[in-house]
């Protein structure tokens, strides 16, 4: 499944990038994130609790940030599994300057497996949009603060 889109932030690109590349900020903003601790220079152990019916459960795994090109882009890889199955994401976050504002573009391949794929497939698109929306709202608050 493809998850892609963009969001406009009313802040200059370096500042937006800095927030998006800060794992403590990410930990606060990722929906249901209970833990995001560095394991290595670019990888983090993560635990997320998702409370949406078809994909409800606790997922633990690894978040990797790679190919950092500040302030333009970085690659984000998430591998998480839990009782409801697994979710793997791999994609790029790109930061495009637009005057004083910044457009954040995201383009992810999402793979889900196990019961979450079997039962949740028909609603996964909606759930992904909801979670992405929650994440960006939280990021906006952080950037604006």
């Amino acid at each position: 499944m493809k998850v892609e889109g963009s969001r406009r932030f009313a802040a200059p690109r370096p500042r937006v990038y800095e927030y998006f590349a800060n794992h403590q900020v990410l930990a606060r903003c990722l929906p249901g994130c209970e833990k995001l601790e560095p394991e290595g220079p670019d990888s983090y152990a993560a635990v997320m609790r998702v409370g949406i019916a078809a994909v409800k459960g606790t997922y633990s795994g690894r978040v990797e940030v790679a190919e950092r090109e500040p302030p333009e882009r970085y690659r984000l890889k998430v591998e998480a599994s839990g009782t409801a199955g697994f979710v793997n994401m791999d994609g790029v976050l790109a930061f495009v300057a637009d005057g004083d504002a910044t457009e954040v573009r995201y383009d992810f391949d999402v793979q889900v497996g196990g019961p979450v794929a079997a039962v949740g497939q028909r609603v996964l698109g909606g759930i992904a949009r909801l979670l992405v929306g929650q994440f960006f709202q939280a990021m906006e608050r952080e950037v604006a603060a």
Partner: peptide, 14 residues
């Protein structure tokens, strides 16, 4: 099945 080999039809809804 999806391309990853996940069976998408595992209930009488699907």
């Amino acid at each position: 099945y999806d391309e990853g080999g996940q069976l998408l039809t595992t209930s009488f809804m699907d």
